[in-house]
């Protein structure tokens, strides 16, 4: 591996974070992220994503294990790590009373960018994320998407080789999300920046990431390219909605024998889901069985495998909705008394 490549990789072995009064937020994870790769770190709220990012960005000392970011040890060579990385942490951490240009001025100065270059570099980055027109307006009036874009631009002032993005699109509308994705892809593709991205959106990981790691309760439960992970599952899932809501249990009883894992999932929308053994071919049989059991159906849908299915298969729970809206369960009490990183991830920026 060349020096340059080494400088853009992330290697993690047995990383643990145990909070004083809390659970093991991160429970011995191993990771390897290649230079220039976009790595999607997927998991529900409270799974340990943010804690992992805080450790990898040197903001939180690990309890055990080791991590090297850009070739530097996060526990012992924090300053070196920080020089090599850029980070946009959960929720855009901006000062509402400063303008984009003033943020740039501060950020470039703090990073030691020579005075003569600060203005040019700041303007260039502002232009690049499409904020030129709003550059002299106070951030207070920005939309969520604008804040995230400024946040991203700020994390780039020192030309980092590795970029950490913690839930960069949480709370954004689809259009803002797409434009942020575009910029992240461009950074990886054109500039060869390694991107470590946490998300609770399957779509985001599916779309952006070369490789995905799925974390649940502090442990990595699956890792691979999105395609490979979905192929592991293989079978499509069936989602059925009974005409009478009270027949949901009866429907589940009928569907259970068709489930590849013998298990039915009750969705919040009143439907019953099952991983269909035998794939599409089994559909006719399902319909007959429902008919025979006198369970009327309003809707019957087959879904190709998604990352949610992967998550479901690995953890027995559905990613969407698990932990959503109840805040980030990562109890950061102790080392970070305010739980600064434990803000509700579902809250809009």
């Amino acid at each position: 591996m060349s020096e340059r490549e080494r400088a853009a990789s992330i290697e993690v072995e047995g990383l643990v974070k145990q909070f004083k009064k809390g659970p093991r937020a991160v429970d011995g994870i191993d990771l390897h992220v290649e230079p220039g790769e976009i790595y999607g770190f997927l998991g529900p709220n409270g799974a340990g994503k943010s804690t992992t990012v805080l450790m990898l960005t040197t903001l939180l000392p690990p309890t055990a294990g080791s991590a090297r970011v850009a070739g530097w040890d996060v526990a012992r060579e924090g300053a070196r790590v920080r020089e090599s990385i850029g980070a946009a942490l959960q929720e855009a951490a901006l000062d509402p009373f400063l303008t984009a240009r003033e943020h740039m001025r501060l950020q470039t100065a703090l990073h030691g960018v020579p005075k003569s270059e600060r203005v040019r570099l700041g303007d260039e980055l502002i232009e690049r994320v499409g904020l030129a027109e709003a550059a002299d307006r106070k951030v207070k009036g920005y939309s969520g998407g604008m804040k995230r874009r400024l946040d991203l631009a700020l994390s780039l002032v020192h030309g980092p080789r590795i970029l950490f993005l913690d839930e960069p699109t949480t709370g954004l509308d689809p259009q803002s999300r797409a434009s942020l994705w575009e910029e992240v892809e461009r950074l990886a593709r054109e500039d060869g920046v390694t991107v470590f991205l946490t998300t609770q959106y399957l779509e985001e990981a599916d779309q952006l990431a070369n490789r995905v790691g799925i974390i649940d309760r502090g442990q990595i439960v699956a890792e691979g390219t999105p395609a490979a992970l979905k192929a592991q599952i293989g079978e499509p899932s069936l989602e059925a909605v009974p005409a009478e809501p009270e027949q949901r249990d009866a429907m589940a009883a009928v569907l259970a024998p068709f489930a590849s894992d013998g298990d039915c999932v009750h969705h919040e929308r009143g439907s019953v889901g099952v991983r269909l053994r035998g794939g599409d071919a089994a559909l006719a049989e399902v319909v007959r069985a429902l008919d025979a059991a006198d369970v009327a159906v309003t809707s019957l849908q087959l879904h190709a495998p998604t990352l949610d299915d992967v998550f479901l298969a690995k953890t027995g729970r559905s990613l969407e909705g698990s932990g959503d809206g109840d805040g980030d369960g990562e109890d950061l009490d102790g080392d970070r008394p305010d739980g600064a990183a434990a803000r509700p991830a579902g809250a809009p920026a």
């Binding site: 960005t57 040197t58 903001l59 300053a79 920080r82 020089e83 990385i85 850029g86 980070a87 942490l89 959960q90 929720e91 951490a93 901006l94 000062d95 950020q107 703090l110 990073h111 030691g112 700020l154 305010d338 600064a340 990183a341 803000r343």
Partner: peptide, 16 residues
């Protein structure tokens, strides 16, 4: 407020 909003984290990531 800087602690609450994460601005302190941003500053902490610079060589300050």
């Amino acid at each position: 407020r800087d602690i609450e909003t994460g601005f302190l984290d941003r500053l902490s990531l610079t060589p300050l």
